[in-house]
């Protein structure tokens, strides 16, 4: 009896998922039938005017840090929330890790790669408005440094080099800095998070110091994301 019940349940689940897929197919089919090429004036505006208005060559960055910078504040908050949750779930004092001894090559490689990672991360952050990358990606790359340290040398070593409190501080400073940079717009008589509109001197398009506040916002997000992900990782691994 229970076996039949199990079967029925499984069948029910599969039927549900198939029905969902069919509905989504209907949506795609309907969209396919529509002629919706003409409806992208927003992106067309970004593409044609974006470089001039924001000063950033990388349009994704200009969308993230200028047109829709408020979203970025929101997602930075999400990371901060996640970091806060993880550091809440794992009390600070317990710092042990299931140790695995690696061969000497691993240690050497780690030591060797850390400067490269740092340079790569900083490059990604600072050139975020010129090339692919930006605060998020660069921050994540930076966060790999403590992660590598933790994996190869253990939590104690990693946390003695980069104290959790410091990371938390850096994360908070990043978030606060983002908001303060946003408030610069208010100070100069424009709106919150204004950049292209507030005339911070877009500079010469294509140079490092250009695009107004975008590089600084990138830096803030970079250190925030890096510190946040490092906290998340360390908390996860410290979990006994």
């Amino acid at each position: 009896m229970s076996k039949i019940n199990e079967r029925l349940k499984k069948l029910h689940t599969i039927a549900l998922v198939v029905a969902l897929a069919v509905f989504l197919l209907v949506v795609v089919y309907e969209i396919h039938n529509l002629d919706n090429n003409s409806k992208r004036y927003l992106s067309e505006h970004y593409i044609s005017e974006g470089v001039r208005e924001t000063g950033a060559i990388n349009l994704v960055t200009s969308v993230l840090y200028d047109y829709r910078a408020f979203d970025t504040l929101g997602e930075a908050t999400v990371i901060l929330t996640a970091a806060a949750i993880l550091s809440l779930l794992v009390p600070v004092s317990k710092a042990t890790m299931l140790g695995t001894k690696f061969s000497i090559i691993v240690y050497q490689t780690t030591k060797f790669s850390i400067p490269f990672l740092a340079v790569l991360g900083v490059h990604l952050i600072f050139f975020g408005h010129l090339s692919p990358g930006g605060g998020f990606v660069g921050g994540v790359v930076l966060s790999i440094i403590p992660i590598l340290l933790t994996i190869t040398y253990g939590v104690e070593f990693s946390e003695s080099k980069l104290k959790p409190a410091k990371k938390k501080l850096v994360e908070d400073i990043g978030a606060i800095g983002f908001i303060l940079l946003g408030l610069l717009g208010v100070v100069t008589g424009s709106n919150f998070l204004a950049n292209g509109q507030a005339n911070f001197g877009p500079g010469n398009t294509g140079e490092l110091i250009s695009a107004g506040l975008i590089p600084y916002l990138n830096v803030m997000i970079g250190i925030k994301v890096g510190a946040g992900l490092a906290i998340i990782f360390n908390s996860l691994i410290k979990e006994k």
């Binding site: 994704v60 969308v63 997602e75």
Partner: peptide
């Protein structure tokens, strides 16, 4: 279109955070 790419970045970050929280809860 650059907008969906920006949205995708945001979604990736949010998804990663949510996954991390979920996994922490799983361990707990």
């Amino acid at each position: 279109d650059p907008i969906p790419q920006a949205l995708a970045l945001t979604t990736i970050i949010i998804g990663g955070s949510v996954t991390a929280v979920m996994l922490a809860l799983v361990i707990k």
